[in-house]
């Protein structure tokens, strides 16, 4: 399988098909990350598209010393944070509507409630802590990759990440959340 940098070079040389391969490779990860930040499927779809378009526009600025994946996450972080800042109020309203509409089979209600509790706890974290937790836990980025994506030092990422996890634990305990053994 051709590596990311090879595909980037091919795209810059004029082979437009190469960009399709890059999108296919990362679209699910970028969408999942954006969804965890925005909690809105339609917005996440739009922002995923926007992230890739921003990446294509700035593809000549991509320095091959960093990985394409980390660079792409950096764009996704900026795109989603800009969106969140702009639409903060609307987002909160949407969150309430999603929470109230989540009803399914009787057997899954309790499980859904638990997931919802965790998801809501994640939203109580300050933005940078939430970002560090999402990138480390869900996207499995290393500390160094997370630092590059967030545009800060590895030490800062560690501090945000551990404070975030600690705070999540406290919030869940306050809600009498039952941890799986």
């Amino acid at each position: 399988m051709e590596d990311d940098i090879g595909l980037v070079e091919r795209y810059i040389a004029g082979e437009t098909d190469a960009i399709e391969e890059l999108v296919m490779r990362y679209q699910k990860q970028i969408y999942a990350f954006i969804y965890r930040m925005t909690k809105d499927m339609e917005e996440s779809k739009d922002l995923t598209q926007k992230t890739f378009l921003n990446a294509v526009k700035g593809i000549r600025d991509f320095r091959k010393t960093a990985s394409f994946k980390t660079w792409l996450y950096q764009i996704a972080v900026n795109t989603s944070l800009n969106h969140i800042k702009r639409d903060k109020r609307e987002e909160v309203e949407f969150e309430d509507s999603v929470a109230s509409s989540q009803s399914g089979a009787l057997t899954s209600i309790l499980e859904n409630e638990k997931r919802e509790q965790v998801r809501k706890s994640l939203d109580t974290l300050p933005e940078r802590q939430k970002l560090a937790v999402i990138l480390r836990v869900y996207e499995s980025l290393s500390c160094a990759e997370t630092a590059r994506a967030m545009g800060c030092s590895e030490g800062t990422v560690k501090a945000h990440y551990h404070s975030g996890v600690k705070k999540l634990k406290e919030v869940l305990k306050e809600k009498d959340y039952e941890f799986s053994s």
């Binding site: 969408y31 994640l122 937790v133 836990v137 959340y177 941890f179 799986s180």
Partner: peptide, 18 residues
């Protein structure tokens, strides 16, 4: 152990497939 428990719970939160 606590950190592992929190991360395990976080990982269970799924993302809807578009």
């Amino acid at each position: 152990r606590d950190e592992l428990a929190v991360i395990s719970e976080l990982r269970k939160v799924e993302v809807p497939d578009p």
